[in-house]
């Protein structure tokens, strides 16, 4: 029932006459997608990361460099970005989990990794330093640049479905169970024979690979990236907020979170024009949501169903 309703809702934007409404749907789906990516490691694995932008930026730079430096087709950016993001995730995961980092310590180390990547991309010739990379304009499906927002929406929606399937799989699979066991009680899970480093690293790699795809799509949509856009902490915070507000560790949470946060942001933006006032209101609403719904919006869903 829930699934049917969601499918219908997801398909509505294709029928919308207005490009800007499609675009809002696309941005919402995009937030939901990156929130879901974060959720895979952050929610199901309890690996609270403050630096998921490191994966986003990896994907963004992968597709940008592939095109401008090697002249390859941007569609190749999807597999290359996925692998690159996955490898970065695996590397960060292996190093951190081997060192036994968790909680705030893990969160901070991811933040630092994102910062290292930002500074590197800002200083290396290979990434054109602070100049950023401009993708040559060339609209066309073959070139992964869509003039019609519905096409972008379709791609983002596809990715969201993919990430949500991953989340659903985590919820049902043995791997997901091991991950959840580690999240709830590391010592007990390890006593039962769960390989901590391997399991957590795999989860982070999967999340990293998927997040990199978001970077690829972003680059192909806005055609310009620089170190701050790619690796800045704003993106990390957005992912974390979407997942946590929606309900970390639930399959539908990030989608609910993205919808709620976009409604708040868009509505406040269009009604108030004093600079700073709209985002301030956004912050207030955020506080209210945290206060009223400690388990995120998915928790509300559960509560309503039980009532």
């Amino acid at each position: 029932m829930k699934a049917v309703a969601l499918v219908v809702l997801a398909l509505v934007p294709f029928a919308l006459p207005s490009q800007s409404m499609v675009n809002i749907a696309m941005l919402t789906a995009f937030s939901a997608f990156i929130g879901q990516c974060w959720n895979i490691s952050g929610g199901f694995g309890g690996l609270t990361s403050f630096g998921h932008a490191v994966f986003f930026g990896t994907g963004a730079y992968a597709v940008a460099i592939l095109q401008t430096r090697y002249g390859l087709n941007p569609w190749l950016g999807l597999p290359v970005g996925f692998v690159a993001g996955g490898l970065v995730g695996a590397a960060i995961g292996a190093a951190s989990f081997r060192a036994g980092l968790r909680g705030s310590y893990f969160a901070l180390v991811t933040l630092a990794f994102a910062e290292v990547f930002r500074i590197l991309s800002n200083s290396l010739d290979f990434t054109r330093g602070g100049l950023g990379i401009n993708i040559p304009l060339g609209m066309g499906v073959g070139n992964f640049q869509f003039a019609d927002r519905r096409a972008t929406y379709a791609v983002v929606l596809g990715l969201l479905v993919l990430a949500t399937l991953c989340a659903a799989w985590l919820r049902r699979s043995r791997f997901g169970a091991r991950l959840a066991a580690l999240r709830e009680n590391e010592d007990a899970a390890q006593a039962l024979g769960v390989d901590l480093v391997r399991t957590k690293t795999l989860a982070l790699a999967l999340s990293g690979g998927l997040t990199a795809l978001a970077g690829v799509v972003y680059t192909q949509t806005y055609l310009y990236i620089d170190p701050t856009i790619a690796f800045g902490s704003e993106r990390s915070v957005e992912m974390l907020l979407v997942a946590m507000i929606g309900g970390a560790g639930t399959v539908w949470g990030p989608i609910l979170g993205a919808v709620a946060l976009h409604i708040v942001a868009d509505v406040s933006r269009s009604f108030i024009s004093t600079p700073g006032f709209a985002p301030m209101l956004y912050g207030v609403v955020l506080l209210v949501i945290i206060g009223v719904l400690p388990q995120g919006m998915a928790g509300l869903w559960e509560r309503l169903r039980r009532a």
């Binding site: 207005s18 490009q19 800007s20 675009n23 809002i24 941005l27 950023g132 401009n134 927002r149 972003y218 949509t221 806005y222 055609l223 310009y224 620089d226 856009i229």
Partner: peptide, 30 residues
């Protein structure tokens, strides 16, 4: 940049006949 783009869409549909902006180059490009 993504919000600049969104605004262009919204305003185009609201019937904007022209735009000015965007102070920063990255926003202007988008």
């Amino acid at each position: 940049p993504e919000i600049a783009t969104q605004l262009v869409d919204q305003m185009a549909e609201a019937g904007a006949a022209g735009f000015t902006g965007c102070f920063a180059s990255a926003l202007g490009l988008a």
